[in-house]
Nucleic acid binder design. Structure first.
Lengths: 348, 348
DNA sequence: TCCAGATATTGCAACGTTGCAAAAACAAAT
DNA sequence: ATTTGTTTTTGCAACGTTGCAATATCTGGA
């Protein structure tokens, strides 16, 4: 549903009152008004008062673009995420904003809701305010769609998107991490281990890579992966995890462990297990992925694969800084370290 | 700890390659390069190729400030939050970005970590990229500190900050909401009800108002508020709620209900209760505030006061739009509707 | 009164881009 | 060869601001 707003005519609204107008009103030069606005010391008190009065009366606000143009560009980075309110992305965004502030960069956050059209628009910087660099966490965008005009801003991809070789990329090693998580459940004596989180409808690689790691671990333990225990989901939120687990239980699947591809899925799955009277970890061991804060305070606390988020963000910003400094660099792929965080939900 | 980064000299980095440089390299006019960059249709294929080659070779990127200056300002709003990764703020930010996109406004997100100095800097727009408007969720800033220069951008305050009358403000009615939440626990037969979440060290009013509502409800039921059951906290996160509840239990407080000033505190408190073997809601009923998504999937699910977040964001943006259109408007205070969301944790 | 030395104010130019409208080059038709 | 119409390219000006350097005004001391 398109909502129409009272049109805010920027041409009239932002541009109308300029230093020139204020100067005319206060009967001083443009330069003097600028001096007042910028708290330049050598302005006579009476003049300053007169100018301030004119500013208030006319409602003058400095034009940011003009100021920036004059003073020299300030570096602006767009952080493009599927959704900010997903805890994992919220935590990434928090680290990102903090790290960017350290470097005196401005961050501008966009949300795509995972929609293909909006992701495509963001990638070329055609939509939005324009940025000097883009950090992009794609969802629907396929690898082969990445093609960019010659004057498009540099992009760093966040997350799994293998084999492109066209843009810089920073991600955890999902296959290895999934293998370790599954191996951990196996080490605890679990043998009927489900996997929740494949998204077959998306071109996103994450689900496929984690499934691969999961299968490798089973195979390494001499078990044959059972396709009936690999549960696809629509999105990666709690409701999807809850639903997937409900399907498993309704179907009478005989499981004693679950590897969920995100903590949110895991928390949803645990919710269903609790409602069904299954004990975690006694009846079913659960492990997730992302190490979101909620997992540290759930009942029981959630075991998880914990990527080093501050490091991830630093790698991304370094990557972008390098590329801004030298646009001829070849595309690089960098790997973020992770570790298993074993808590109650998978306690052996 | 101050980290020093390889200096990214913007003067050299962003400003150096301009249309003029590309034009010289490609042996065409500046205007033709601009035509290529903007996909203007009437450019001969050979010329276009030549210009694109020059762009790639020199690494040209358009100067955003200059473009904006020429084309007319695009409205930019700073959203200043204590922390983005707190679920409540993350959800607010998500609604905010979505609503701003609808209006074709650009959003900058800033994080203060609740630090007084940074809040003060943001308020006057002295730090940061400069914005046409600021939406501000203060934490440490006292009401009497709000004083602004004549050309500072308009501000809308988010959350409790009563009696200032200097800037626009949008908030829920905390006193009424707290009263209703407490009354709900009372209606379930609870009589020894604790309150967790007062922050006596902050000038933030929220805690005081919710405490007031809590006490009013007790008084209305003929009960005398017991100061020993009002637990102060440092921050509003899960660990703080967990700690406060542990203090209560260690002290042997005989409680059968808790009103937590945020859902995060409530989830922490429920964690402690579970660890202590107290059943929620049978032994202790719990109700929170904010309606974060985690509360809908906790075990047990969390009752809460649910502010209408989409409405909150719309009110804020409307407020800002009105003020941008007419700077002489008096400061307004607007109230966001809320409702009780009763789930398992307080089931009667 | 006049001159130095400070303080206060100003005009000009430029930041990099694009709208406008004119000019140049080209192709097709007479 | 000339006209007509179309495609391609260009020069000029302006967006609103501030750095620079110059000028105007004021203050107090000789």
């Amino acid at each position: 549903m398109a909502i129409s707003y009272r049109p805010l005519d920027l041409g009239e609204l932002m541009t109308r009152v300029t230093l020139r107008d204020v100067a005319a009103q206060a009967e001083v030069s443009v330069r003097t008004v600028s001096n007042v606005v910028n708290d330049f010391p050598h302005v006579a008190p009476a003049t300053r008062r007169r100018v301030q009065a004119a500013i208030s009366e006319l409602g003058y606000r400095p034009n940011i673009a003009a100021r920036q143009l004059r003073q020299g560009q300030r570096l602006t980075i767009s952080l493009v995420l599927p959704e900010i309110d997903s805890p994992y992305f919220a935590e990434i965004a928090a680290h990102f904003v903090r790290a960017a502030e350290q470097r005196d960069w401005t961050v501008h956050i966009e949300q795509t809701d995972g929609e293909l059209a909006r992701e495509r628009a963001m990638l070329n910087g055609t939509h939005g305010p324009g940025a000097d660099g883009i950090v992009f966490s794609p969802w629907s965008l396929a690898a082969n769609e990445i093609q960019r005009g010659p004057s498009a801003p540099p992009v760093v991809m966040l997350g799994e998107r293998p084999g492109t070789g066209l843009v810089d990329r920073v991600a955890v090693d999902s296959v290895a991490a999934a293998r370790q998580a599954t191996a951990h459940l196996l080490a605890g004596g679990r043998t009927r281990i489900a996997a929740i989180g494949l998204q077959p409808h998306l071109s996103n690689e994450t689900g496929r890579l984690r499934t691969q790691g999961y299968r490798e671990a089973l195979a390494a333990a001499g078990l044959t992966p059972d396709p009936a225990l690999e549960m696809p989901v629509e999105r990666l939120h709690r409701p999807d995890g809850a639903r997937a687990m409900r399907h498993l239980l309704d179907r009478g699947a005989d499981i004693d462990g679950v590897f969920c591809f995100t903590d949110q899925l895991a928390l949803g799955a645990m919710h269903t297990l609790a409602a069904a009277g299954r004990s975690v970890p006694d009846d079913v061991a659960v492990i997730g992925f992302d190490d979101i804060e909620a997992g540290r305070y759930s009942v029981p606390t959630l075991s998880t694969v914990a990527p080093d988020k501050p490091r991830l963000v630093e790698l991304v910003l370094d990557c972008l800084a390098d590329r801004l400094a030298d646009h001829t660099l070849p595309a690089r792929e960098r790997c973020v370290p992770h570790r298993l965080e074993i808590r109650q939900s998978s306690h052996p």
